[in-house]
Amino acid sequence: MNAQPELTQALLYLDGVSVSFDGFRALNNLSLVIGPGEMRAIIGPNGAGKTTMMDIVTGKTRPDEGDVLFDGRVDLTRLDEASIAELGIGRKFQKPTVFESQTVEDNLLLALKGPRSAAASLFGWRNRVKASELDGVLETVGLAEHRARLAADLSHGQKQWLEIGMLLAQDPKLLLVDEPVAGMTDAETEETARLLTRIAGNHAVVVVEHDMAFVRALGCKVTCLHEGTVLAEGPIDAVSANERVIEVYLGR
């Protein structure tokens, strides 16, 4: 089925994906290809299907039709969230979601690669986790001096970074990041853009965002979704000059 050589190159491959809820077509014949180590920004108006696309990639929603392949061979539509996460896909939610009653360090420890089974955790895998990895992640997301604090006590921006840090600790091949700078100050937004560009290269990153300045700062290929399908794709300048994109999304 996926004999074309191009498909085996792609890290994430969506083809003809459709899904509807009670007659509403959230995704309509959507096709999208993300290469290994690529950074991609996804824009589009509300209801364009951005979050639904992420739900489908991470196994939260099953598509009515279409192919979703990871690494050119794994059919993601047959797997559950945990298996998909183990394959190497990490996801950050729109609303920052961290384990509030645990410390920053514990949050990252929970995310670090390692055996995930209940038996392994009952009998102490935590001892085998490398402290150096943990320190590296803390350094990357700039939370080193907050490692002992409860996640609940962090600021909104810090929680976003902690969540990104948890994705990094997972060491996934692909990161899906949903609106990482919503509610952030300008300084925090710039810091986040730098953080994400640093991450890309080692990992493929897909960012959903409304903030056009932020998308510009990422300096990557942009895909604009509208009514569940791809409206335009290309460099930011080309996409933002597209007549249809201006009409349905950016405004004049």
């Binding site: 969230e81 979601t97 384990f99 509030e100 645990q102 929970l110 955790s121 102490g124 997972q170």
Partner: peptide, 20 residues
């Protein structure tokens, strides 16, 4: 460590799920 996962599940079940 099991207990930490358990608490994680209590506080943010889908986060824990997406962590694998």
């Amino acid at each position: 460590a099991y207990g930490k996962v358990l608490i994680a599940v209590r506080d943010a079940e889908s986060r824990a799920r997406f962590l694998g």
